[in-house]
Nucleic acid binder design. Sequence first.
DNA 1: AAGGTTAATGTTTTT
DNA 2: CATTAACCTT
Length: 640
Amino acid sequence: MLSELNQEQKEAVTTTEGPLLVLAGAGTGKTKVLTTRLAYIINEGKARPFECLAVTFTNKAAREMRERLENLISGENAADVWMGTFHGICLRILRVNAEKLGYAKNFVVYGEDDSEKLIKEILNGDDRYQPKTIMNIISRWKDQALTWDKVPDNYNSDLPTEARKIYETYQKRLREMNAMDFGDLILNTLTLLQTDTATATKYQNKFRYIMVDEYQDTNIAQYLWLKLLSMGHNNIACVGDDDQSIYAWRGAEIANILRFEQDFAGAKIIRLESNYRSTQHILACASRLIAHNSQRLGKDLKVAPNINGNGEKVVIRGVFNDRAEADFVANTIRNALNNGMNGGKIAVLVRASFMTRLFEEAFLIRAIKYRITGGLRFYERKEVMDIIAYIRLLLNRNDDMAFSRIINTPRRGFGNTALNNIRQYAYDKGCSFFEALTEMTSNDILKKAAKKTAEDFVNMFAEWRQRLDTDDHCELLKKMLTDIDYVAKMKLDREREENFSEVVKSLSDFRTMENLMEHVSLDFGAEEADTMTGCVSIMTLHAAKGLEFDCVFLPGWEDGLFPSSKTMDESPDGLEEERRLAYVGITRGRRNVIISFAANRKVYDQWMRSQPSRFLSELPKNNIKLWLDRGIVLTERLYE
DNA sequence: AAGGTTAATGTTTTT
DNA sequence: CATTAACCTT
């Protein structure tokens, strides 16, 4: 097991005791180290599987780790390791302990959509602020482990003082509906561990070894959570790369990784710097670029022995406009495909998703098969969320957000004013929307027509609830969908109808409706169709983190677009984060990296003149090959 | 309450 | 331009 590792990797695997930070540069075998280390601990008998905690940020990463672990440990059961996302692990802990925090065990998890709708409801027509903005502020507070009562008065001078008040109301409403949002999963678990010593001790003793992936992406709440959980045995190993921290705008604190040695006394730091992915020219560009950042622990990627050698220089292509850029990329790819290259090994990585359009068009013309990753996820589609809301209300009649979503979907003559009446009634009585509706139907408050539809709605749910215990859950769902006649009433097109039946189908993978809900709320299924093999990938730089491609195109390297002026206006650290994003982009490439910029670009239907990205001038001259069209210049001097 | 019209607004999005 | 939310008319 250890024989396949290099010296640093071996050290990272066998250093099991005490705090450890593994600084793993791009392509240095991070996942391998993580899984091998876990297997090593278990195989050496240092801990049993269920005494190990391995935390990741994505379900994909957790699945991958689990699969690889299964191949490494024998006899022991990989399934017993506590492995999952921060949110997943927290959910697991909270399901058992919710009552200690005043929640019922079967609380629901609200997604962004529900949260925003709830904020909107709380704002009560006040259109001075956007629900999204408020929700963002609240989420950032939660990221920083600030419960509403701990938000300082002078939190932010240009922030409406009402935000904190809204936060308070928001939490109160969530509690009434027995719901938590994503941030609550972390924050409530943290509160539980901080306030309930017995519970804290239990988990602290349980987890002998803790491992964390992508540590550079943790926020303050997650840091405090880890700190608390690791207090028992003090064996915490964090793997990450400060140079790949690109989620500050979502609350990630790069300071967590920069401060690791101070935070965890006696911490050991191991650097993985042998890169098994890219050629020398690519690494040289990446290294020189990232060297311009000040906030870093410092690390130098070296080409791993026997890998690839110098390879080809990084190409910088300057063209007249965005159209020419897309044509260039598409032509180059068409050529490569004609020469037998597999399209699946090629990627176009853009800064912002609107940039994918031109490439799509250019690819279509040339019959280049492509796939766009990102965009709406399966469970975020309207028709899918609608069914989910039906299930949610069925399982939890206090779920007012689900109620609001479906009371008039499909249309049943129950519009906004009616919903407002219900809201008012529920507010006055301190009951849920569903109860309000039920009472209103029996109290003759409603007009005749409305009364009829309301009664039907209530009766429909009453019948479904009865069947919940007796009927097969798949059959029940089918019945529900027939009863509401969704497909016909919503005039679904072919694609949407397929999405719809996909949910019905996926329910059969789960034992109960509750099981499906758990899955839906935290694991937004990325249905990777296998028919997509051989397709060129188009995605954002953010989505590309963790992936690799033989050939990578990085278009749109223009000041204002990349680095994005918006990010730089937002925060003084913005430029460095953008640079890390550029670093992530370059280090995705194994053999070819082709950067491009256009002198003119149509943005919102307006032609904009743009300057080449300042990042271009931060690349080492000897490792790049310039290819500029007539009249296109790189004004800044290039580094030697 | 529904449907049609106009005005505003355009990054990145692991859970 | 093109999408979407808010608005206004029936």
